[in-house]
């Protein structure tokens, strides 16, 4: 068993008092592994990532978030980032009016990166080198996602949190980004990814969690989740059990263990 990079322990969080979005979620990301967090719309995946980063003021309401033995509760997002937990948020969080170069420079505000680090990151994303002086808002969706990843890498993360990195991208671009993630992980980076698309999420992951209405309903190694009949039916679109007349169930049965 390797050590945990991130532990989320019994976290309850929400945006308004008395309206909990997460109701006692516990999950772990192990050193050097990729964990995938699945769930449908509104399950609380993004809220979980935002709670870890400290983006929701005065949350989590209950429970603890621990990164390598350091308690993250109540820390400002910039402090969490400087500790080495880097989030690429939903919508990528780019500055559309700044140039690609300026977007990258911002990652060096808290801790300057060296020329070698900068070159290494641009070598990974050659297209950004060509587009250096262009406004970030003029990049294509895939290029924007690459810029967001490049910026995150310049922060030298120990743990990368990704909120739907494949959202709205062409399949070929998605494959490209997944290859990058795979090679980053091989180099030792721990990753927690949030996905709606379970098939994609489980192809590049060691361990998976299924979140539903603010509770974890299923967890296990990625292969086991892929073969799990419930996950197959609900998230992978594998059809089983046709009704006597041959119709598909409108609302699939959930059989959580």
């Amino acid at each position: 068993m390797t050590a945990e990079v991130l532990s989320v322990l019994n976290v309850e969080a929400g945006y308004r008092k008395g309206l909990a979005v997460l109701r006692g979620v516990s999950l772990h990301v192990r050193e050097g592994q990729v964990a995938a967090l699945l769930g449908s719309n509104g399950a609380g995946k993004t809220t979980l990532l935002r709670t870890v980063m400290g983006l929701i003021p005065d949350q989590p309401e209950k429970g603890e978030v621990v990164f390598r033995g350091v308690r993250l509760n109540g820390k400002d997002p910039d402090a969490v980032t400087r500790l080495g937990v880097v989030l690429v948020p939903e919508g990528r969080g780019l500055f559309p009016e700044l140039t690609v170069e300026e977007n990258l420079q911002l990652a060096g505000y808290a801790r300057r990166y060296t020329g070698r680090e900068y070159e290494a990151v641009l070598d990974r994303f050659p297209v950004l080198r060509e587009r250096r002086w262009q406004q970030a808002g003029t990049l294509s969706g895939g290029e924007q996602q690459m810029l967001a990843l490049a910026r995150a890498l310049l922060l030298r993360p120990s743990l990368l949190l990704l909120d739907e990195p494949s959202l709205g991208l062409a399949p070929r671009v998605v494959a490209q980004i997944f290859d990058i993630l795979k090679s980053l992980n091989r180099e030792g980076l721990s990753i927690l990814r949030v996905e709606q698309n379970a098939r994609m999420a489980l192809t590049v992951a060691h361990y998976g969690y299924v979140l539903e209405a603010g509770r974890l309903v299923l967890e296990g190694p990625a292969e086991r989740l892929r073969d799990d009949p419930n996950v197959q039916e609900l998230y992978l679109g594998v059809q089983r059990e046709p009704s006597p007349k041959g119709f598909r169930r409108w609302r699939p049965k959930r059989r959580w263990a």
Binding site: L55, P77, R82, L87, L98, E102, A107, Y109, A110
Partner: peptide, 25 residues
């Protein structure tokens, strides 16, 4: 300047700036 760049970033999107480790406050 660096501070100016951070000022522009924080003005545009303080949350995204914080996620890059920029101390928005």
């Amino acid at each position: 300047t660096r501070l100016g760049l951070a000022m522009r970033a924080v003005a545009q999107n303080p949350e995204a700036a914080q996620l890059l480790g920029v101390p928005a406050g």
